[in-house]
Amino acid sequence: MQVTLPDEKAHVAFGETLGRIFQGRGRLYLHGDLGTGKTTLTRGVLRAYGYQGAVKSPTYTLIEPYEVDGQRVYHLDLYRLGDPEELEFIGGRDVLADDALCVIEWPSRGSGWLPPADVHVTLEVDGDGRRATLESQTQRGAGWLAVLGDEMWEKAQERP
């Protein structure tokens, strides 16, 4: 499934839609070059749960936990990860086992250690906006993408 995000507002709104569909559970892996909007998408996901603060990429801390209205969301950025085994030392196993939503940037750096994603999102620059390509890797993720497809179709029908 591909989605065109013409500007930052659409990008954040799309993240909110994903956050709502995920209902605070699962694993969302974000791929894309530097500057393609992985953290912007994460900001939208967090907005779905009512978080209004700044969202920065946890490039140096690797994990940024958020708790909003009893909902836990973990934002991981593995860009600076030297070895996937480092995730063990920073509590990655506990984070991924938690009944929460884990949004992971640069998941390829944790290859071989990370469990499968429910949904992969690959972001690419598309003119002034972005293009998001989504793929499910689990049955739960396939269900979420089906819901997303239905929502997008309904919105398209509402347009004049």
Rank of each mutant, 00 (worst) to 15 (best):
Q71V: 13
A97T: 10
A100C: 15
W106H: 10
Y60S: 03
H75W: 14
G44Y: 13
I63H: 02
T59W: 04
S108F: 09
D94E: 07
Y29N: 02
A97Q: 14
T40H: 10
T59V: 07
H31M: 01
Q71M: 15
G26N: 03
V73I: 15
T59Y: 00
T59R: 04
P58V: 00
E86L: 11
L76D: 13
R43T: 05
S108D: 11
G92L: 00
D98S: 12
G53R: 15
G50Q: 06
T40D: 07
E105S: 13
V103I: 15
E67N: 01
A54R: 13
Q52I: 05
D33R: 00
G50T: 01
L30I: 09
E105R: 01
S108H: 12
R25Y: 00
P84C: 15
Y66I: 09
G44S: 09
H75F: 11
G35C: 08
G92W: 01
L87C: 09
E105K: 02
Y29E: 08
E67R: 06
S57E: 03
G92V: 00
V45T: 05
D94R: 05
S108Q: 14
T61R: 01
L62A: 05
K38L: 11
G50F: 08
L87H: 10
R25V: 09
L78T: 11
G92Q: 00
L96F: 10
A48I: 10
Y29L: 02
D94L: 01
A97L: 12
G32W: 01
H31L: 03
L87M: 13
P58A: 05
V73D: 09
P84G: 06
Q52A: 06
L96T: 04
C102D: 03
G32Q: 14
E88H: 08
V45Y: 12
K38A: 12
P107E: 04
A100L: 10
P84M: 12
P84K: 14
L76I: 14
G91M: 05
L81A: 03
R93Y: 05
T40K: 05
D83K: 12
Y49K: 00
R47F: 02
T40E: 00
